[in-house]
Computed example of a mutant assay.
Amino acid sequence: MGEKQPNRLRKKIVIATVSVLGVLVGGVAVYTGYLYNKADTALNRMAAAQPAKPGQPAGGETTGQPMKPISFLLAGVDNREGGGGSMNTDALMLVALNPETKDATVVSLPRDMRLKPKQISSQKANYYYAYHYNKDKEAAIPNTKQFFSELFNIPIDYMAVIHFDGFRKLVDTLGGLNIDVDMDMRYVDTEDGTDINLKKGRQILDGKETLDFVRYRKSNQGTAESSDLARNERQHQVLGQLLDKLTSFNGIAQWGSVLDIAGESVKTDIPVSLLREWILQYGKLKPDRLEFVPLEGRWDSPYIVPTEEDVKTALTAFRSRLGLPADDSLKIANVIGVDSPEPNTVTKDTYRR
């Protein structure tokens, strides 16, 4: 009897342990299935896939071969109520990613830089996505991508549009960002509900505050005004922190909410099948090194005017990340409002991860 009692106890412990493990494994399977279905729904909502054109680069396809460099045009869009129905493109970035070297180059285009396309009127850089969107909502992304690709004579594989309300929700879901606010910021606009009130110094910003931080330009409450260059630097700081958060343990645990936000707030012409592959290959695609190339320039109301040499340097850095040589055929002054050539003043801020 004395020997049977411990055996029964061990048996009960084993059964209980197996039961608990079974529940855990079952729970993980259910949660994995839940995330898969949620991801599938989100990807289908995000994708605005267009038929591939002959000769279109197939950047990033994962077929067991070395992954090719990929290029993107990213646009941050704000079309809040109270803005008179306008669609403001507050952020424009050209991104070149080399998955093999795990390096990426980000070129921030000033929203107030004057562009001089041949077929459309000369306007600020932030005008053209809204222009194409108002002409044809379904074709806005491929047409805007083609516009910038032809203007700068660079390959752009895909475009993604992120609505700022989704950006705010994403930052809140990730628990805020630890940001070094570079100056006191105060601005109020009762018409569209803008109320920016930030103090200089490192602090945790929630979604609204982070959005205020990257959008701040002018003040009507006594604080100093900001430049497009400073805004670009803030965007770089926030982008680096977002990538860190999304790949942290907490970020992964919150992917369900993140996928919901992405489905509501992101539109892209990346095909759904390729988006799925990239999620599975995210460890290979995530860059270890980000090279930020902001375009500096002087303010000549209502435009930001960079130098021709600065623009050339920025585009060359972008092309180099894609493994392409510099383009000496592009006459930059013909497509962008620029100052006469002068010594290069582009600064490269490298964010190491």
Score class of each variant (00 low, 15 high):
72 F>S: 01
21 L>K: 09
345 T>V: 08
314 A>E: 05
158 Y>K: 01
261 I>V: 04
5 Q>W: 14
245 K>I: 05
26 G>F: 07
221 Q>C: 09
138 E>L: 11
345 T>P: 03
299 W>H: 11
46 M>T: 01
171 V>G: 03
21 L>D: 02
95 V>R: 03
38 K>E: 04
316 T>A: 12
80 R>C: 10
252 I>R: 14
203 Q>I: 11
202 R>Y: 13
335 V>R: 02
278 W>Y: 09
74 L>E: 07
31 Y>E: 13
191 E>P: 05
18 V>F: 12
163 H>V: 05
165 D>A: 15
3 E>N: 05
266 V>I: 15
240 G>P: 01
282 Y>G: 07
282 Y>W: 12
84 G>F: 14
200 K>F: 10
136 D>C: 06
200 K>G: 02
136 D>N: 12
5 Q>T: 14
64 G>P: 10
212 D>E: 04
20 V>I: 15
268 T>M: 00
264 E>D: 14
142 P>S: 09
48 A>H: 13
129 Y>W: 12
198 L>D: 04
41 T>R: 10
12 K>G: 10
7 N>W: 15
13 I>M: 15
40 D>A: 11
27 G>M: 05
11 K>Y: 10
9 L>V: 15
104 A>S: 10
59 G>Y: 01
122 S>H: 15
299 W>E: 11
9 L>Q: 14
331 K>Q: 11
177 L>G: 00
198 L>V: 14
149 S>L: 08
135 K>Q: 12
183 M>N: 07
319 R>W: 13
16 A>Y: 05
53 K>H: 06
73 L>R: 04
40 D>H: 07
137 K>N: 13
167 F>D: 03
6 P>C: 11
291 E>F: 04
285 L>S: 02
